[in-house]
């Protein structure tokens, strides 16, 4: 992600943690790594391009889907499936070389000369890129609220209208859930980056992992359900196994179901949240172990 023009900054930044007295457990080291990540990998022209691309894609989807002309909930419905595909792709683009790249350029070796613990490297790298990813996702999604407000303000003359459950609060929930989902997927990407040995394997592994994430987990759920490995009664909780299904379930349960009324439950919010949390913490832990090698 980083471009050659930033290498001077990189050296400047790495020069900062020159105070071993602060102690390895001090958060200063962490902040330093986060700051380095932000300036080298996040605040770049590439990221701006990515942001524009994401925003354009979201606008196009909601416009042609018709959701943005009607309201918040319909926009959520239009975006849900596309985002399930889009978020992992963006997260992998941002994350798959994060640690690997540092290793390739010898940055990790430099860092190892400082009293930096592996978890600090992982967390710092992750936090820096996560800030960038979350910023891209939340600002792009928030931007969509403008056309909704504008188009929603159109009202027929003859009839009274009301918003029903179509509140911006539901859309904010959606933004938050999507940001969390993006952070989890980024953690997975970071883990892959830490595990991969070479750039070429990183691309391959990231691609395979992406594929497994997008299709494999859900197809596995379908397989397990049809073979009776998952009881029908526990499907709603088992959805949490797949990050995509956990995210989808959370969105449906906390936004769409609020307006749609009763019916079969779409997800167990708690199980789905725990599922995402496990993926998140687990991935970062794996990355830490991998860096420690």
């Amino acid at each position: 992600m980083s471009t050659p023009t930033e290498s001077p900054e990189t050296s400047g930044e790495t020069a900062e943690p020159t105070e071993p007295a602060r102690g390895p457990t001090g958060p200063g080291m962490l902040f330093a790594i986060v700051r380095r990540e932000l300036s080298t990998a996040v605040v770049t022209w590439t990221s701006l391009g990515l942001w524009i691309g994401v925003l354009g894609t979201l606008l196009a989807i909601t416009w042609f889907g018709g959701g943005v002309q009607v309201g918040y909930v319909s926009t959520i419905i239009d975006l849900l499936t596309p985002l399930e595909l889009l978020i992992p792709v963006i997260a992998f683009v941002i994350g798959y070389r994060a640690i690997l790249g540092d290793e390739r350029r010898g940055v990790l070796d430099v860092l190892r000369t400082y009293p930096v613990k592996p978890w600090q490297v992982v967390l710092g790298t992750y936090a820096g890129r996560a800030i960038g990813l979350v910023a891209i996702v939340t600002t792009a999604l928030s931007f969509l609220m403008f056309p909704i407000v504008v188009t929603e303000s159109y009202r027929p003359i003859f009839y009274a209208t009301h918003t029903g459950s179509n509140s911006p609060g539901l859309f904010l929930r959606f933004i938050v859930l999507t940001a969390c989902f993006a952070m989890v997927v980024l953690a997975i990407a970071i883990a892959i980056s830490a595990l991969a040995g070479t750039t070429r394997t990183a691309i391959t592994v990231a691609g395979l992992a992406l594929f497994a994430l997008l299709f494999g987990a859900d197809i596995g759920l379908v397989f397990a359900l049809s073979r009776g490995l998952i009881a029908e009664s526990s499907l709603v909780a088992s959805l949490a196994i797949s990050p995509l299904s956990a995210y989808r379930g959370l969105v449906l349960e906390t936004t769409v179901a609020v307006t749609a009324g009763t019916g079969p439950r779409t997800a167990s919010p708690l199980a789905s949240a725990v599922g995402l949390l496990v993926w998140w913490v687990g991935s970062l832990a794996i990355a830490t172990v991998a860096v420690d090698r």
């Binding site: 959701g67 009607v70 179509n166």
Partner: peptide
């Protein structure tokens, strides 16, 4: 796939969908 992705939940909350 882009169209399928959009079509997926179209019927979910008809009262909040455009006039189709």
């Amino acid at each position: 796939p882009a169209l399928d992705a959009l079509a997926g939940f179209q019927g979910a909350v008809p009262g909040m969908r455009a006039d189709e």
